[in-house]
Design a protein around this nucleic acid. Structure first.
Lengths: 197, 197
DNA sequence: GTCTATAGAGTGATAGAC
DNA sequence: GTCTATCACTCTATAGAC
């Protein structure tokens, strides 16, 4: 990977984040890199391929970091706490890429779309597994693991996208709020009426 | 409002939802309506204006329905339960428009953007008010009302966008899951460590 | 590895006939 | 209220020089 290939990628991440994939043109990316638009095609075969590379790297790194953080942790509640904190950390750390990965799926070719969706499913499955084990162990209340995993992930992902480094809350404070809210929502005994489905 | 004006709006909602605003062309909208693209401009001055009309009507109706549902309800916990259920119901009922209103803000002119963001803030304020009153009354645990309101709203909004009418869960079941999860997350006494901020 | 030049298609929007 | 025709422009991508 030459330096220019890296520059193109990071300029694209910035533009796709700010303007959206479809609203960003190859000329703008080129201008941001200080080269002519034709030169982009020496490094990437198409605009869509550039988007795919950004998303694919993000999804791979995301799953890898979570797996690394969870390895060795056996307590169910702790696994969920760790997973939530790591998800928030990763999304805050790479805010722009994650925002793109969550909002620009429609820009992908059907083949690339499938690759990304499979990686997303694989990641979500890690959360669903924790929820199912927690329910079986009687630590978490009964509930639909898929729906609850979507709820947890959307919550944290969205939280990371509001975050502004100069804002009034620190990364630790945000993580704490979500961790507390989610564990309270999942745990057995914290009832209102009953959990449906 | 002539019939064709309504048709253009509903065809646009469908296309903006499926393909996104920038990826949808005026010609496609016209084709979907069975007219020529120039005829669109008799009804709407521009593509952006069409987007604004869709978003603006959605936001107005959203706030109006919530206000109507909450009027007369004084119990804090019940107000939150009602607000959550109504938010989910509205978002399921008008899934496409709500998805557009949440994802296509970048397509608006600065003037129209401001109008929509103000309406969104006004709607969120209703939730923040319930949270603050609940905290003061000692029903809900201490926590940042803004962050918690974003969390609650994102959760329910996202839930509505996964929903498929032919899926395995009913509207009632989905509402129940979220209502339970959110109330458990908010209530005093359902602690893990403590809530930050 | 980057350039200039351009192909080929599509875009939002307008003019003016009917 | 819808049509045909077209303007003025932008877009992604490619060819070929250096």
């Amino acid at each position: 990977m030459t330096d220019m290939k890296t520059t193109i990628k990071s300029v694209s991440i910035d533009l796709f984040f700010r303007k959206g994939y479809f609203a960003t043109s190859i000329s703008e990316i080129a201008a941001g890199c200080g080269i002519q638009k034709a030169s982009i095609y020496y490094h990437y075969p198409s605009k869509e391929d550039l988007l795919f590379h950004i998303m694919n790297a993000t999804m791979t790194d995301l799953t890898d970091s979570l797996r690394r953080c969870l390895s060795g942790e056996t307590d169910i509640e702790q696994r969920m706490r760790t997973a939530v904190r790591e998800h928030v950390r990763f999304h805050l750390d790479r805010q722009k890429e994650n925002f793109i990965a969550n909002s620009e799926l429609r820009g992908l070719t059907p083949e690339h779309y499938q690759v990304i969706v499979e990686k997303r499913d694989e990641y979500e499955e890690i959360f669903q597994d924790i929820i199912r084990r927690g329910t079986q162990a009687g630590v978490f209340a009964d509930g639909d693991a898929k729906i609850l995993s979507y709820a947890i992930l959307t919550l944290c992902t969205a939280g990371a996208s509001w975050y502004k480094p100069a804002g009034r809350l620190s990364v630790k404070e945000i993580s704490d709020i979500y961790e507390q809210f989610i564990i309270a929502g999942l745990k057995k005994g914290n009832f209102g009426p009953m959990r449906g489905a």
